[in-house]
Design a protein around this nucleic acid. Structure first.
Lengths: 239, 239
DNA sequence: GGTTGTCAAGAGCAGTGCTCTCGAAACTTG
DNA sequence: CAAGTTTCGAGAGCACTGCTCTTGACAACC
């Protein structure tokens, strides 16, 4: 078999294939450990044990524990991003407010199922950890859904600009850059509201998931929907 | 000296005093280590080394590392709570919106200075950690500031109820309990908005502190003020 | 004075991230 | 095909962690 490989075309040698497979297996086991014991409970030695090799061998694939964690963080961003994109697409023919509400519910559902991965990307970062460049792409997927949605709403006339609050020159240029990059013709007032709604989404999920609503709110589902419905109405129409 | 102690009235013996002092010293060193290396970098052994005793001796004062962490968490809640109360008191003669804006700015400032402690209480909880009963009191101080402020605004007529959004029976009873406990005569519509504003405050600080605005927002101060100003206007007047 | 309770210290266990070396296997090149 | 090179897994080892148990000394009480 290996003697008749089609040459250096597809992932080259058997060794390269084995390397890719093992990298994936390590990541898979790591993801399971992460889901079960949390980020700080992710032990390279334990993962190695389960994969069936000695700990030092894992370092051939991930140069440090943090690098394994980074790979899992990227996967998590991609998972929640794909989730948000799917939720938006599923309601593409509805109004902007409904689409955003759908995205909110999808993100929360994902967070509830993958609690530790959510905490990993939207909770406090691990202590000495600085997010490498490779994460910013996947991390942008969810915000991009929101921006695309707003751009649609502006062209369709669904989103009302309303009064533009006074803002500093620097903030105005930040918003201008954002508009140029990802949200053509979305006015500053709407972009500013979008940040508020985005912060409120993450804040509400955090309140629930990190226990700050304990003994206060009991019907989490209804509470979240209530909050996000108000927020998405606020998003499309200035108060 | 110790022979003429006034008897078993004030903290009894010299040993008890030494115990209290050492407990405080351990906590102080722990707080410094926490601020410097983060929660997961809080090493009981390192703290012991710096206090000048062997690690096992520390266990006489805190039965486990998590117990030391709990003590620090309570202190952090108290610190930010006191900070919020002071900010509210400093603007007591201003309007409700200004008072809340003041509280928001104060909490953010505290978070920027005490980043790791903020992450400890408002970021993702440490993995296996379940907040013990003793934390719920101090944790309530900031929300109580918001609720008291709203109660003031309702009696003074500053806060407009607006339309009450439809909500489930359970959520209504949650809000009723909250009203009975800490915010007399604040209507459901206002309480519901308060959760939104509270979530938005924490969400905005989290976005900034956990790096999600990197390369997007550059003037963090102005951005935060912009967002919170809108939020506090929204709080007092229904959209 | 003798008893009792408290305390710091030390040794030790099981676990961690990470580094280094070594031999064997797989691949590349002459 | 054979020699040389790269890659890989295994093992030992270092410095560290949280935590437990035992030992000996000191202070507090009867």
């Amino acid at each position: 078999m290996t003697t008749t490989t089609p040459g250096p075309s597809a992932s080259r040698t058997a060794r390269d294939r084995a390397r890719l497979e093992l990298t994936e297996e390590i990541k898979a086991v790591g993801r399971r450990h992460l889901a079960e014991h949390g980020a700080s409970g992710l032990s390279l030695r334990a993962v190695a044990r389960e994969v069936g090799m000695v700990s030092s061998a894992v370092y051939r694939y991930f140069p440090s524990r943090d690098d394994l964690l980074t790979a899992l963080i990227i996967d998590a961003y991609d998972a929640v991003g794909e989730c948000a994109e799917a939720a938006d697409a599923a309601a593409r023919d509805r109004g902007v407010a409904v689409r955003w509400l759908n995205v909110c519910e999808a993100i929360r559902s994902w967070a509830l199922v993958n609690a530790h991965e959510y905490a990993l990307i939207y909770g406090s970062p691990v202590p000495g950890y600085a997010a490498p460049e490779a994460t910013i792409g996947p991390a942008s997927r969810v915000p991009l859904v929101l921006l695309r949605l707003l751009a649609d709403g502006v062209t369709s006339g669904e989103v009302v600009a309303g009064d533009t609050p006074p803002m500093s020159r620097v903030v105005r240029s930040d918003l201008a850059l954002l508009r140029r990059t990802a949200a053509p013709s979305v006015p500053d007032a709407v972009l500013s509201r979008a940040f508020g709604v985005w912060a409120q989404l993450l804040g509400t999920i955090n309140l629930e998931m990190f226990g700050h609503l304990h003994n206060t709110i009991h019907d989490y589902d209804a509470f979240f929907t209530l909050q996000m419905r108000r927020a998405s109405e606020f998003l499309v129409q200035a108060g």
